[in-house]
């Protein structure tokens, strides 16, 4: 083939080449545009998913946190309540011990003989004149008949008096 023929052929194909190139450019641009759009959409979707995930994680975290906070609060309340009750029990125990000690001190007072006399009378009234009445080591008396016993020791009487106080004991911890 001569050079002239070759030029003619090239000239004849020029529009085709131009057209093909234009079409290829257009396709490429469209492809790029679509790719850009898809990328943007994907990025947006990913961002949206990430936001949703973060929101969900935050919600779960808040819920877990609220649960933990509630558990902590319940435990703290239980502990506080337990300490309060423990302190009250201790105060009540001390009251009983002190009452027993103080009432024991009556033995050394002048009026103890008269008191003991009254307790003996009370014991005989309950168990009969034949009751065997003996002194108690802590003060007061204990009376016995076969099968029966009356404890009028000072510590026992103090215990019963405290039992009868009922709600008044609350003044130990209430204003």
């Amino acid at each position: 083939m001569t050079a002239a023929a070759s030029d003619r052929t090239a000239n004849a194909l020029h529009p085709v080449r131009t057209g093909l190139l234009r079409a290829a450019h257009a396709d490429a641009e469209a492809l790029l545009a679509r790719a850009d759009r898809e990328a943007a959409s994907l990025v947006e979707q990913a961002r949206s998913d990430a936001r949703a995930l973060v929101a969900e994680a935050r919600r779960q975290g808040e819920a877990d946190g609220a649960d933990s906070a509630r558990d902590l609060l319940v435990r703290a309340r239980r502990e506080a309540r337990s300490r309060t009750l423990g302190a009250r029990r201790e105060a009540y125990g001390r009251l009983r011990r002190e009452a027993a000690e103080r009432v024991g001190g009556l033995c050394a007072t002048e009026g103890y003989a008269a008191l003991r006399e009254r307790l003996e009378q009370r014991a005989r009234a309950l168990l009969g004149p034949g009751a065997e009445v003996t002194g108690h080591a802590d003060g007061g008396v204990v009376a016995r008949t076969p099968g029966r016993r009356v404890d009028l020791s000072l510590t026992e009487l103090a215990d019963r008096a405290l039992d009868r106080m009922g709600g008044e004991v609350r003044r130990l911890w209430e204003p």
Binding site: R89, Y92, G166, G167
Partner: peptide, 13 residues
Amino acid sequence: PLDGGPPVFGSRD
């Protein structure tokens, strides 16, 4: 009591 506190008190029973 099972909670470590003193007996339950009341102004009456």
